[in-house]
Amino acid sequence: MQVSELNRHGFTSGILPAQCPSRTVLDHVTSKWGVLVIIALSQGDLRWGELRRTVEGVSEKMLAQTLRTLEADGFVHREAQATIPPRVDYGLTDRGRALAERLLPLMDWIADNADEILSV
Results as ranks from 00 to 15, higher is better:
residue 31 S to V: 13
residue 54 T to F: 01
residue 3 V to M: 11
residue 16 L to D: 03
residue 20 C to V: 04
residue 12 T to L: 11
residue 34 G to E: 03
residue 62 M to Q: 09
residue 4 S to H: 11
residue 39 I to S: 04
residue 9 H to I: 14
residue 6 L to W: 11
residue 68 R to K: 12
residue 7 N to F: 13
residue 37 V to L: 03
residue 25 V to P: 01
residue 19 Q to C: 11
residue 50 E to K: 10
residue 30 T to Y: 14
residue 60 E to A: 06
residue 11 F to H: 00
residue 29 V to G: 02
residue 23 R to H: 12
residue 54 T to D: 06
residue 40 A to M: 11
residue 19 Q to M: 15
residue 47 R to E: 08
residue 62 M to N: 11
residue 70 L to A: 07
residue 33 W to A: 00
residue 2 Q to W: 03
residue 36 L to P: 00
residue 23 R to Q: 10
residue 31 S to P: 06
residue 21 P to L: 10
residue 69 T to L: 09
residue 69 T to C: 05
residue 37 V to S: 01
residue 28 H to D: 00
residue 69 T to F: 07
residue 60 E to F: 07
residue 43 Q to D: 08
residue 7 N to T: 11
residue 5 E to G: 06
residue 68 R to F: 14
residue 3 V to L: 13
residue 36 L to E: 04
residue 67 L to G: 01
residue 61 K to S: 08
residue 44 G to I: 07
residue 19 Q to Y: 15
residue 26 L to P: 00
residue 40 A to H: 08
residue 9 H to D: 08
residue 35 V to E: 08
residue 28 H to S: 11
residue 68 R to Q: 14
residue 2 Q to T: 12
residue 34 G to N: 09
residue 31 S to F: 13
residue 61 K to H: 09
residue 42 S to N: 14
residue 57 G to M: 09
residue 55 V to R: 01
residue 6 L to H: 04
residue 60 E to R: 10
residue 7 N to W: 05
residue 46 L to S: 04
residue 62 M to S: 05
residue 18 A to K: 01
residue 57 G to L: 09
residue 44 G to W: 06
residue 19 Q to E: 14
